[in-house]
Write a protein that binds this DNA or RNA. Structure first.
Lengths: 351, 351
DNA sequence: CGGCGCAATGTTAGCGCTAACATGAGATCA
DNA sequence: TGATCTCATGTTAGCGCTAACATTGCGCCG
């Protein structure tokens, strides 16, 4: 057995991922240096056409795929964006994710998707975890954030775009926001119901996240201004909103305020549930009770009657938020810090 | 200006992510070596209680978060799992993702979620991209894969679990699968409809992915065995299945086979659309036409009438697939290679 | 009581890549 | 006609971490 002094350099070579092709192998086979291969792949315009072709050929032959961890470590650019959404239980945030994905994927970005379950504490935990990935940017669903979250985001110096809301007073003037005014949308719907002649308009709310509260605020403002606000016509519970909950809340509402002639649901899940429950109870919609929703989920156009609702530009919000984030990552001073993508009232049969 | 020879070592220090706390700083402040900090965080049982406490204290003080890229590079363990799903447009795969997430997150794994849009070519593209991350495992939605996909997965030597299906003949005996027999589930539903006295049972299909085709196969087998199969009662289109499409397909079916007394939809989106369309046309359900679905989406229990359907254990599939994957990553020989989680017939009002 | 095993901690090297600077060969200009 | 610039490519070092081996100190045993 050799003495320690000799064994010192007799280590096994550490090929951690055996079979993985490295940039050095490509470089050797193409007869160039590693950095040239790197440049041929990252900044092709800085390599002569001839060499580039040769390198690309070798890359294809060997099936070389650059190691992201190594690239991230060496360049301090992770090409990773963290997306935090409060829920994935209906398609609302899925639509937004698709918009984000369609912008960032072609640019080589990877998404780390975190579900906060509407909890500021969970959001903070996720953010701490995701710091380890040195993300190039954050896409956060606006709402209430813990002070630690705000501090983490500010201190990180990482570009951040807030999605969905524009009403927030606590968003600083330098924060980038893309979304719509939830309050205005709710005001528009409430006014529409008044215009259609409904006078005793109720409100069903679940989840009670900031967006729901802003919608309720819009509803209240318009009814108060019209002298028709009555707190007895509000039903609000903190549970996640589902179709089943909509059915249940409708029952509660009818017990609590049997005289109402319309009900504005803070989102379409509830509206669908309320509609089904009316069918079950034999209540004519909109004859005896009108129903309005929010978000324009796919099924709402097909129920009988179809549901009057507010269509929100969810895909566009994701799309534009991602574009804004890319600009910020590139270091451009943003042309605008708030982007209002509006909403559309979908007047259908239920109201 | 200094001559080149002197400037050679006058480089700016490369702090790529300024402000980032490194393991070296923690080590210095705690008066230990870097590897001890690493061990205190990764394998706490290998560090004395006293040192561990001191290190954890310093970690908290400095807000140290280990750099994942560096860890991945040094250890060849990325703690990353790639999940490929064919769609995110309804909650079917979201439920599965949640099951996966709940198992892997507590273990420190990060998910890279790819949406193949039911396209084998896109799946292959995603897989190539994701190779760059050196994932520790793959969770793939069973179905048809390109030969290149199968080769990539086999050659990578990375543990892989297939989800959703058990019917595949082309799954090798060593492949790990978690799911249910789509065919059996469809057979069960078709038999149920026969038992309830329906005799002219139609089938609506969209998307035409492998799971849909297996369901149709189950439907056909049972009807053929009962001598009641009639191809005219099948409507199949390749479009993604949505509630709206369900309405449209019902119209087509009634034109094509007006005599049918029940319709089995290959999933609940279609079933809901079909139900709404019946309501619109004034067809009594189940009186004039019975409707059955597949997947038991949340709303199906609340429509009027509620929809008879097959409940699939989607969350459990994700959960068990992730657990199986963890075992495989740990190098254990799997106790079983196929796990059948079954299904439940939800007998409701629509049939 | 010397050798051994074991537990706790340290030293060294290197994972695969790219930033920063260096070099050399033309092109450009006064 | 040399000084300067530009472009294409190369050399060197190091990103932050952990595997592998080394070292130290202690208890234990025959």
């Amino acid at each position: 057995m050799p003495p320690p002094a000799e064994r010192k350099h007799a280590r096994k070579p550490r090929t951690r991922t055996p079979g993985q092709v490295t940039i050095a192998e490509v470089a050797a086979k193409a007869g160039v240096s590693a950095i040239t291969v790197s440049r041929a792949l990252q900044t092709p315009e800085r390599v002569s056409a001839e060499l580039r072709a040769r390198i690309e050929q070798v890359v294809r032959e060997l099936g070389y795929v650059p190691n992201r961890a190594a690239r991230t470590l060496a360049s301090a650019r992770s090409h990773t964006v963290v997306v935090l959404v409060p829920s994935l239980s209906n398609t609302v945030f899925i639509d937004t994710l698709n918009g984000i994905y369609d912008v960032l994927r072609p640019q080589g970005y990877q998404l780390l998707i975190g579900n906060t379950h509407y909890s500021p504490a969970e959001e903070e935990r996720l953010l701490t975890t995701y710091r380890a990935y040195n993300p190039d940017g954050f896409l956060i669903t606006g709402g209430d954030h813990s002070s630690a979250t705000r501090r983490l985001l500010a201190e990180s110096g990482t570009p951040t775009v807030y999605m969905m809301e524009l009403d927030e007073e606590h968003a600083g003037p330098h924060d980038l926001c893309v979304g719509l005014s939830q309050k205005e949308a709710a005001q528009t719907m409430t006014r529409y119901l008044l215009e259609r002649g409904y006078r005793r308009i109720a409100f069903l709310a679940a989840q009670l996240d900031p967006r729901t509260l802003q919608r309720r605020e819009g509803y209240r403002q318009v009814l108060r201004a019209a002298g028709r606000y009555d707190p007895a016509r509000e039903v609000a519970v903190p549970d996640p909103s589902t179709v089943g909950l909509g059915a249940e809340l409708l029952d509660r509402l009818l017990r609590q305020a049997p005289d109402c002639d319309a009900v504005f649901c803070c989102n379409d899940d509830l509206a669908q549930g309320a509609l089904f429950q009316c069918q079950r109870r034999g209540l004519r919609v909109p004859g005896q009770l009108a129903i309005a929703g929010f978000n324009d989920l796919a099924a709402s156009a097909w129920t009988v009657p179809s549901i009057t609702t507010i269509a929100t530009p969810r895909y566009a919000i994701g799309h534009e938020a991602a574009r804004m984030l890319l600009e910020a990552i590139a270091g451009h001073t943003p042309s605008r810090t708030r982007l209002d993508l509006g909403f559309t009232l979908m007047a259908r049969e239920s109201a």
